[in-house]
Nucleic acid binder design. Structure first.
Lengths: 103, 103
DNA sequence: CACAAATATTCCTTGACAAGAATATTCCCT
DNA sequence: AGGGAATATTCTTGTCAAGGAATATTTGTG
């Protein structure tokens, strides 16, 4: 997750969401210098967020889906808790109504 | 998102997922020193991930749900792309079958 | 009001990390 | 093999953030 903390890296990831790009294309679109892009891609790669496909002397980078669905699972574990709490609040309100009717 | 990049802060957030805690309780459970916990909670608070409820001289910290559902939305925008691509792959395979049958 | 518990803040030091510049590597082409 | 394009790596420098220790602040209690 710390790989996504760096702003430029986040931009790269969001750029790659739509389609794969080469290092040069990424550098152009984000107005970054090539060495920094390579370095950021290295970090993203080691974090498993990205994979490379070498074609000639170009390297095409694309996102890997696993870490994202993994992060999604992690997030669900948070959202679920709130859902459950909401359910319990629901029950609580139902109880109130019943008492109100004298049950 | 950089607020979650720090390991101890991530631990704090995961601890708070289950229920609210005071600063001292967090420090005890995670084996951290109180000042660091206070500092981390400050960062989490300024990032909007957490909110405080002062009771006496204690301060009870709990998660806020908005940033998490927001992060979830962001993630969905990634997962959606893969779903769409999977759909297109599906169509592609259907086309192959039709051609195979000579249509 | 003095004291104690809980928490926040400050100052300092150290380590990590990102950018810049220069250079190395890899691949294709002729 | 030599040259050029695309990308990676190294080295250096400056900045920032986390931890440690000490101290300040707030709140309740006798």
């Amino acid at each position: 997750m710390s790989a996504l903390a760096e702003p430029n890296r986040l931009q790269i990831v969001e750029l790659l969401r739509d389609e794969p790009y080469t290092v040069g294309e990424i550098a152009d679109q984000l107005r970054l210098r090539q060495p920094q892009v390579s370095k950021h891609l290295r970090v993203l790669s080691e974090a498993g967020l990205v994979e490379v496909q070498p074609i000639a002397n170009k390297r095409i980078y694309k996102l890997r889906h696993q870490p994202f669905s993994q992060l999604d699972d992690w997030l669900e574990s948070f959202l679920n808790v709130w859902d459950e709490r909401f359910d319990r609040l629901d029950e609580y309100l139902e109880d109130l109504k019943k008492k109100d009717r004298g049950e």
